[in-house]
Write a protein that binds this DNA or RNA. Structure first.
Lengths: 164, 164
DNA sequence: TATTGTTATACTCTATAACTATA
DNA sequence: TATAGTTATAGAGTATAACAATA
């Protein structure tokens, strides 16, 4: 009934009208990218969440921790230890809004931006291991598509926020 | 000292010689793809790991559970409950190798392939929400790049396995 | 003794729900 | 009373290590 070879690298059947799932191709790639990032982050003394916070605050200061959490796709309770740490290191500024002392105004400091820039340079150098193998046309198309997806996600999120 | 506006959608600075990190763009995308998949998987009565197993066994039968685990990037202990379940549902065949009764020969059944095909069709229809917005050229370039990355990962893994 | 599969345990990560302080 | 932030707790998911069966 089942009469295929039990080889590990038997030719993968790939009918002309089928494609692999996006997530099935992307998830292992992301995992590998993250595995490559972790030592770099550790060497620069920050966690993945901390790096994510620095990236977001470098794009723009934030008027509340909840907004920051939403921007980076985290729970608001989850980033608190990260913010404590970044503040203690002097990488972010975090002070109560004088107009509403419940909310915290968040911004990256010069020191924080320097760490973020150094870390990002190393990370992107590592990513060239993947991008470097692409033709110039494929590279630019791939990055363009990813940026388009990112922008569309942000637009959809803003729309959902405004309607609520 | 810090004099930017605290707006959430302030223009993101994007210097001409910089690009966003690959992982920073891919990770949220993968998360969203997975969130869209989970209801589909639930409706078809299988878990994410089970679907991953069906995909792998549909590509090729496997001669051991450890090989299967490695192929899908899982721990060998983690997939055991999944295999139990898939076997109970009649979606996979799992029998001791007569030549070495320690190892289990694994293969997908016709019923398992049917569930996998139905699930995959739904998932890929959902993914068209993303791919459908791309130009034909961008779509084919994007998928070509992802396949290239996937193939390179597999080649690197086979190389590492053979040298050990 | 080495290997495959299995089970048990400990650990990390994450989400949920109370709690405080301001409004 | 409602909201921003914080803390505490419970749950899910994961990895590590011990165990049983076979070679």
């Amino acid at each position: 009934m089942i009469c295929q070879r039990y080889d590990s690298d038997v030719a993968t059947k790939r009918a002309s009208d089928t494609r692999p799932d996006l997530a099935a191709m992307l998830a292992p790639l992301v995992r590998e990218l993250i595995d490559a990032e972790l030592p770099i982050l550790a060497a620069n003394g920050i966690s993945m969440w901390a790096y994510s916070v620095l990236l977001a605050l470098d794009r723009s200061p934030m008027r509340s921790q909840a907004a920051l959490a939403e921007a980076i796709g985290a729970d608001k309770t989850r980033i608190i230890p990260t913010l404590d740490e970044l503040q203690a290191l002097g990488y972010i500024e975090r002070r109560p809004d004088p107009d509403d002392r419940r909310v915290r105004l968040l911004a990256v400091t010069d020191a924080g931006r320097a760490v973020k820039d150094a870390t990002q340079a190393e990370i992107q150098r590592g990513e060239e291991r993947w991008l470097g193998r692409l033709s110039a046309a494929d590279r630019s198309a791939f990055l363009r598509v990813l940026r388009q997806f990112t922008d569309e996600r942000r637009a959809a999120r803003n729309l959902a926020r405004e309607s609520s």
